[in-house]
């Protein structure tokens, strides 16, 4: 099919499809990006193509990049800064990457808390907490869902706690832990924010995860080791 055989009405749509498939040259891609920028219809089409093709992309294996890649990115983007000043400095330590090879949980947890104060579609994130312990990989991302009534904990690493349960806690300013519920090491878990605690989800509040018996803490307070904790901060 050469260009003459394509109905003029379809040419641009075809370009968008070719862009998504990946057969265009880098120069042609720039042209399509310009085309798409100017036309919401093409924008929507491209997004739809990419969603469909993402089904294929999703099947590529997950491979952990070495730590120096992140350092390289920082140097490219923020070359004039002293790396040690970065809050992520510790993540550059290769030892912190061992979780990817399946080392012990206690050395490897990070918890991210994301709190949205407004509906997701329009809101910028308001709060973020990263909870980590001794080693720097993410173990969960947590978002506030349903207008602040639910917390969604999603494991992002490969935590492993055979025969035990991980229980999430919020530590209120009086120092008391309040259970949020049990987490799952394989999939996201939505936990309701307990009545009266929604107002505690503010910068500075501590969140923690402890290991407990399979049914959760029998006492209502943490009984096992705290494997991750950190503070909510404002984004």
């Amino acid at each position: 099919m050469n260009d003459k055989e394509i109905p003029p009405s379809e040419r641009q749509a075809l370009l968008v499809a070719e862009y998504a498939l990946g057969v265009l040259s880098a120069e042609e891609r720039l042209q399509v990006e310009e085309l798409v920028r100017q036309d919401p219809e093409h924008q929507a089409q491209l997004a739809a193509w990419q969603r469909h093709f993402a089904d294929w992309l999703n099947e590529f294996p997950v491979v952990e990049p070495p730590a120096h890649v992140w350092q390289g990115i920082q140097q490219r983007l923020f070359p004039t800064e002293e790396p040690a000043a970065s809050p992520g400095r510790r993540w550059n330590n290769p030892r912190l990457w061992r979780w990817t090879t399946g080392l012990a949980l206690a050395a490897t947890l990070v918890l991210v808390l994301l709190v949205l104060v407004r509906p997701v579609q329009v809101a910028a994130p308001a709060l973020l907490a990263r909870l980590e312990q001794s080693n720097g990989s993410l173990a969960f991302s947590v978002t506030l869902q349903g207008d602040g009534r639910q917390l969604l904990f999603v494991p992002t690493g490969k935590p492993d706690w055979p025969d035990r349960s991980a229980e999430a806690w919020i530590i209120t300013t009086d120092g008391k832990p309040h259970s949020l519920g049990l987490l799952d090491d394989a999939k996201g878990v939505t936990l309701p924010v307990p009545a009266g605690l929604a107002s505690a989800l503010t910068p500075g509040t501590v969140l923690a995860v402890s290991l407990e018996p399979p049914a959760g803490s029998p006492t209502g307070l943490p009984t096992g080791p705290v494997i991750a904790q950190g503070k909510i901060i404002a984004l």
Partner: peptide, 15 residues
């Protein structure tokens, strides 16, 4: 992408 245990929440990533 490939395995459910490493699939972060899409909404969190968008944010």
């Amino acid at each position: 992408m490939a395995s459910p245990e490493t699939n972060p929440e899409p909404v969190a990533l968008n944010v």
